[in-house]
Amino acid sequence: MILTWPPTLPKPERKTWQVTPQDARAKRQADAGPPSFRRRFSSVSKTVNLSLVLTRNGKAIFDRFFHEDCAEGTHLFWMPDPTTDGWPLLATDGRPLLTAEGAPILLAAQWLCSFGEQVPVETVEGQVEFRKTFSVVVMP
């Protein structure tokens, strides 16, 4: 069974967002001239660096998910794609598309992830908030 990211946790902060694709190239060195590249493999993962600002309750939910549910970050999990999931579907002119009742149609997308090499780092924000900074590897 694959775990699911806790739905009560907030979306990641935008200011710390960073995505790095896995390098799928193999370098070929020629006798002369510049190097060239070929594909090493056809399917690549990407590493996403994230941070969350959490209340004390949110911190407890995150800690339980990482330490207990994911066994110190070793299990795969489904996570909503923060760049797509929950955002409105837009028409070509940029206006949100609406249902017959007038509600916006929302996009849905999920990532299959594992925690990355950077395990969660915790810092204190203000009086009652915590920032968790970590990376996830998004499977191809």
Rank of each mutant, 00 (worst) to 15 (best):
L3M: 06
L9C: 10
K11G: 11
W17T: 02
W17F: 14
W17I: 02
Q18A: 15
Q18E: 13
T20F: 03
T20D: 10
P21I: 03
Q22Y: 01
D23G: 03
A24V: 05
R25L: 08
K27A: 05
D31I: 15
D31H: 13
A32G: 08
G33F: 13
P35G: 06
S36V: 06
F37P: 01
F37C: 02
R39E: 11
R39N: 10
R40E: 11
R40C: 07
R40I: 02
F41V: 05
V44W: 09
V44N: 12
S45Y: 03
T47S: 12
V48F: 01
V48S: 01
N49A: 14
L50N: 04
S51T: 00
L52A: 05
L54S: 12
R56D: 06
N57T: 09
G58P: 01
K59R: 14
A60W: 01
A60M: 06
A60E: 07
F62R: 05
D63Q: 10
D63I: 02
F65D: 07
F66K: 05
H67S: 11
H67A: 10
E68Y: 13
E68D: 14
E68H: 13
D69C: 08
C70P: 00
A71E: 15
E72P: 00
F77C: 07
F77N: 09
D81W: 01
T84N: 03
W87V: 00
W87D: 00
W87Y: 06
P88R: 06
A91S: 13
A91D: 14
A91G: 07
A91Q: 12
P96W: 12
L98I: 03
T99G: 06
P104H: 04
L106H: 08
A108V: 14
A109D: 08
Q110C: 08
W111I: 03
G116W: 03
E117R: 06
Q118A: 13
V119L: 15
P120V: 07
V121S: 05
V121Q: 14
E125C: 03
E125T: 10
E125L: 07
Q127P: 01
V128H: 15
E129I: 00
F130M: 02
R131S: 08
T133L: 10
S135H: 01
V136F: 04
V138Y: 01
P140S: 15
